[in-house]
């Protein structure tokens, strides 16, 4: 068995001392296709933000089995300014950042790779279109194309199918299946449990703390889901200080 891609060590992430992800431990093996599932406020997005370093742990931590620049992260779509005047080609070409950086030029084969990738996500002919003129589904296809050009070993997707129609979702899911076949590790935050069951062999169910982790059929039981709903809603302004795992000191 090879090194895990991510090893969580009693990871606690949160805001204002309130944990959003509480004492998470576990390992994710290379090549896993993992759905991160849980109710709203369960800490799913926070977990991905923690992995890319946008949120610092309140306690514990995690180890990566790969270099940090092998992570590609797709935040929720609302973070983009659609009205900014930039073409689909220019936006997607930024996926080549690791090769061209902030200042390098695109070579002929880079340009061909961008065209090729756009064709793969079904956006051939859209190169010169402004991103503001794309529909929500097309913009998400463009973001997937950019992620493909990033060519990373660990892919993190935060609710990639929010407000996306079912045909686009199916197309994008088949792209994710390709990444899985190429041996990449994929973590996707998802809400559609039916699709999770169909496409994702493994599942991480969290509700502020780990409920279950393993093969999807064993994780998504009604008992687990009911427990997740109760735990995610707990929030008290004057909650007592947490004393679990007192051996770990804050990082």
């Amino acid at each position: 068995m090879s090194e895990p891609v991510i090893r969580f060590r009693n990871l606690t992430l949160g805001y204002d001392r309130h944990p959003a992800v509480h004492h998470l431990s576990g390992e994710i093996r290379p090549g896993a296709l993992l759905a991160v599932v849980g109710p709203n406020g369960a800490g799913k997005s926070t977990l991905l933000k923690g992995l890319v370093g946008e949120t610092l742990p309140l306690q514990g931590g995690f180890e990566l089995g790969i270099p940090a620049d092998e992570i590609a992260y797709l935040p929720q779509i609302s973070d983009i300014d659609h009205s900014f005047p930039v073409s689909v080609f220019d936006m997607v070409a930024m996926g080549l950042w690791r090769r061209v950086g902030g200042f390098g030029g695109l070579r002929r084969q880079d340009i061909e790779r961008v065209h090729h990738t756009l064709a793969k996500v079904g956006l051939a002919g859209f190169e010169q279109r402004q991103i503001g003129k794309l529909s929500g589904g097309q913009l998400q296809r463009a973001r997937f194309a950019r992620m493909m050009l990033q060519d990373c070993r660990l892919l993190l997707l935060d609710e990639p199918f929010n407000a996306i129609d079912s045909r686009t979702t199916d197309d994008l899911l088949s792209l994710i299946a390709n990444w899985h076949a190429e041996g990449r590790t994929v973590l996707a935050v998802l809400h559609d449990l039916e699709r999770v069951g169909r496409y994702f062999p493994e599942c991480l169910l969290i509700a502020r703390e780990l409920i279950a982790f393993g093969p999807t059929a064993e994780v998504l039981t009604s008992a687990n889901l009911a427990r997740a709903r109760v735990l995610a809603e707990q929030f008290e302004e004057d909650a007592p200080v947490c004393h679990r795992h007192p051996d770990e000191t804050p990082v």
């Binding site: 992260y73 936006m91 902030g102 950019r146």
Partner: peptide
């Protein structure tokens, strides 16, 4: 940085 700061932070 103007239209997708999250992506820029992720790659550099």
């Amino acid at each position: 940085e103007c239209f997708d700061p999250g992506f820029l932070r992720g790659v550099s």
